[in-house]
Structure formats: structure tokens, C-alpha cells
């Protein structure tokens, strides 16, 4: 009896955690989403979500989240690949992770200085002869800063996948006459696909609901679902609408995880 009983006992903290901090909040969000601004039960929030304002908001959130994920991947994959080739892998990896220990807001404020009209970035542009231009409060600065913030989360899973790749497979590909690019396409990339998927999930989902960066770096010229949720909870006190947007975000999250996880089983 002892063994089975103990296993159940060990499960207790985990179950309590999941129940209190995962299931209960999701149920609460779902519950609130069925109440209008006066606290009456209704589906009005769901109707409102399908009006042009919120649909446009959803589309624009998607577009930026996609851009951020795509650019992160473009930068992260080669970086992770190079990291596995270096001598002191762990040290280099640490250097990439260290910036993620710095508070997000602090980094955002630092970028306000760097991208400012008289900031370091513009000084550099001036020096190489391009001339200064507006960087802060543009799409460019928004995507740049978010990519910078998310990139460690993209590099880590890809690095792990690349690092655990059996070198014998590469030798085999080489022996069998595969060119470098074929080896990459047919051996390396498929075997690290799981890492890429994890990285994309970890970046795409938070990118959908960013809100502080949209104000600090993009000056509210970029509006995401996160901005709308913040506004409904803090300003209009319309918790119902805020929750409804959150419900859609959760649904989208499940969809993405299901889509990216689906192929693995098929393969």
C-alpha cells in the first residue's frame, strides 16, 4: 500500500497548485465573460468581440506576434547553431540568458533612451552618414525591442535540440554523400523541429498579449489584445469584456499548441 499511497501524497502539492492557479482562474475568467457591464448575465461581450473594432485588434495582434516570432526564429536558429560549435557553450549561453534577468520595464526605459531623437542609435546613424530619423514610437522599434526581449526564449529550446543531436548522424550523412545543405534540410532541421516548435509557442503566445511595451516603445501606435484587456480591467471596469478577450486568447493558445503539437504525432 505504502508506495501507491506515497505517490498520491506527492501529487497533492501539484494538484493543489494546478487547481488553484490554473483551473480556478480560467473558470473565473470564463464566468466573468458572461456578465455585461452592469453585472447582468448576457452574451453581449461575445457579440461585441465580433464587431470590426475587436476583429481588427485581433488581426493586428496576430500580425505583430507573427512578425516577432518569425524574426526571433530567423535570428535564434543560426545563433543557437553557432553556440553548439563554440568551445565554451555554457558560457556563451549564459551571456545570452543574462539580459532576461533584468526587469522588463527597466529594459524598455533603456530603449526609450537609446532610440530617442538624441539617443545612441541616432548618433550612430548620423555618424555613418544616414542621418537621424524617428526610431521611437515606430513599428520598427516595437518589433526590435520585443524580439530582443523574447530571443533567449527562442534560443534555449533550439540550442537544447541542436545540442542533443547525435553527431554520428551528421557523419553518416556526410559519408553517404549528402551536401551540407542537404544534411541541414534532411537531417538537422527535422531533428530540431521540436525545439523550433517549443520556441515559437513560447514567443508567439506572450507576444499576442503584450501591453506595456506597446505604450512605452510604440507610444500606443501598435494596439494589441493585451492593451484592450488592460483598459477594460483598469479603466472601464468592464471585467466582462476584458474576460471575453482573455477567453479568446486562451482559445487561440490551445489552438496554436494543438496545431504545433499535432504534426509530431503524425510523423
Amino acid at each position: 500500500m505504502g508506495n501507491k499511497f506515497m505517490r498520491n501524497v506527492y501529487m497533492v502539492p501539484y494538484m493543489v497548485w494546478v487547481l488553484l492557479f490554473v483551473i480556478a482562474p480560467i473558470l473565473l475568467v470564463l464566468y466573468y465573460s458572461f456578465f455585461d457591464i452592469h453585472g447582468n448575465f448576457s452574451f453581449i461581450n461575445y457579440e461585441r468581440f465580433f464587431t470590426p473594432v475587436y476583429l481588427k485588434l485581433t488581426l493586428s495582434s496576430f500580425w505583430y506576434a507573427f512578425l516577432i516570432t518569425f524574426i526571433s526564429l530567423l535570428v535564434a536558429y543560426p545563433t543557437a547553431y553557432l553556440l553548439t560549435k563554440t568551445k565554451h557553450k555554457r558560457l556563451w549561453l549564459l551571456l545570452i540568458i543574462v539580459p532576461s534577468w533584468v526587469n522588463l520595464l527597466l529594459k524598455a526605459y533603456a530603449f526609450i533612451g537609446i532610440f530617442g531623437a538624441y539617443g545612441a542609435a541616432n548618433n550612430f546613424l548620423e555618424w555613418i552618414g544616414i542621418g537621424s530619423r524617428q526610431l521611437l514610437f515606430t513599428d520598427f522599434s516595437f518589433v526590435f525591442v520585443t524580439v530582443y526581449i523574447f530571443i533567449p526564449f527562442m534560443i534555449l529550446p533550439i540550442f537544447n535540440a541542436l545540442n542533443s543531436l547525435n553527431p554520428a548522424l551528421l557523419d553518416a550523412a556526410n559519408d553517404l554523400g549528402a551536401s551540407k545543405s542537404t544534411t541541414f534540410r534532411r537531417v538537422i532541421f527535422p531533428l530540431t523541429l521540436d525545439g523550433v516548435k517549443t520556441g515559437c509557442q513560447v514567443v508567439f503566445i506572450p507576444a499576442l498579449s503584450l501591453f506595456m511595451i506597446t505604450r512605452l516603445i510604440a507610444g500606443n501606435r501598435v494596439i494589441t489584445l493585451g492593451t484592450a484587456i488592460e483598459q477594460h480591467f483598469l479603466v472601464t471596469q468592464d471585467w466582462g469584456m476584458g474576460s471575453t478577450i482573455a477567453v479568446f486568447l486562451i482559445l487561440i493558445m490551445f489552438l496554436i499548441i494543438w496545431l504545433t503539437g499535432f504534426r509530431k504525432r503524425g510523423a
Partner: peptide, 13 residues
């Protein structure tokens, strides 16, 4: 207040 904020959201977008 909700209408004001909805309009403000539209303006931002």
C-alpha cells in the same frame, strides 16, 4: 465611460 473608452480605442487604432 465604456463608450468613451471604445471610441478612444478606435482612435488609437
Amino acid at each position: 465611460l465604456s463608450l468613451y473608452n471604445e471610441l478612444f480605442l478606435q482612435f488609437k487604432m
